[in-house]
Nucleic acid binder design. Structure first.
Lengths: 160, 160
DNA sequence: CCCGTACAATATGAGAATCGTATTACTTCA
DNA sequence: TGAAGTAATACGATTCTCATATTGTACGGG
């Protein structure tokens, strides 16, 4: 990311708006992909989101997942019940604080989901293969920043 | 997008995987942002998705929205009832085929949602402002391709 | 022209999910 | 020790989803 070239301000504005629109469209498209995958696995929409959170951000307490996902703690109990019954996660009592529970993603069924996402996965590999290392760096940096912006905006709304 | 530089294959693989992970995380984060916005507007999660589809892809028939969103047509009736009651969309009879209905997004309440997304919006403006035109082109291209990949993967799952 | 078939949207009812509140179990601090 | 606070969950009322049935409309063949 080098310094900004002045360029044509109008064209630049258009480009920025295009990117913001694309981001919204991408979110929607990926949500639909998720819904299809979830349907195959008999997983609820929200359940997938939570499973994703648990898989990515390590063992978490139910309330931590609820906070991150913006859901009511009581709702989380139901979600975890379903995920646990279907063998996606395990609940373990926190040895340090016996009120607490930590939820851990189990590797067993992960392959099933991976299989359903294989098409998307290889499509993304193909796309990435068409870029130079430097370009991929730009994209990766952009995505990280966008995630961070999303987190910030979410917290701002959640906190007020 | 120029031709690929050989570079270090291992580092490249790592970079590609990072991007794929970021994409999943971004989806999740934006889903949470959406949930917060939806909560403020008393809009359901799915309702937001459908409203987004209708806003972006012009007037659509209920069944077309249902197909795109991967939802049952009867579910769509309920969703549109809620959206219509709250003044987000309008149903109009299709003059060409009187069995049909077309759903159109109304501009009235769009500003409310825009306001809630203002934080995210300006954060993205800031992020984009830090890139050169050429870099933004790379990002925009990448996003378009990723959307297309998502669409393809979704259709593949939906069709089978 | 009319009838049978096909299609779009919606009504209806059964099952499931969500969330506010109450409850139980445990910790922490006075 | 006991009072207050916290984590998770049980429970019930409300809401949502979806399979099926129904209504209204189009269209092609006789």
């Amino acid at each position: 990311m080098s310094s900004v070239t002045p360029g044509d301000a109008r064209a630049r504005r258009r480009l920025t708006n295009e990117i913001k629109g694309d981001l919204r469209e991408l979110r929607n498209q990926l949500a639909m992909l998720n819904r299809q995958v979830g349907a195959r696995l008999e997983l609820n929409d929200v359940d997938m989101d939570c499973l994703d959170l648990i898989s990515r951000h390590g063992p978490l307490s139910p309330s931590a997942v609820a906070r991150r996902a913006g859901l009511h703690p009581a709702t989380m109990t139901g979600i975890l019940d379903r995920l646990e019954r279907a063998g996606w996660v395990a609940r373990e009592r926190d040895p340090a604080d016996r009120r607490g529970v930590t939820v851990r993603a189990l590797p067993d069924r992960a392959g099933e989901m991976y299989g359903l996402l294989a098409g998307m996965n290889s499509a993304m590999d193909d796309i990435c293969a068409g870029y130079t290392d430097a370009e991929l760096d730009v994209v990766a940096g952009f995505l990280s920043r966008a995630i961070e912006a999303g987190r910030g905006a979410t917290e701002e709304l959640a906190g007020s």
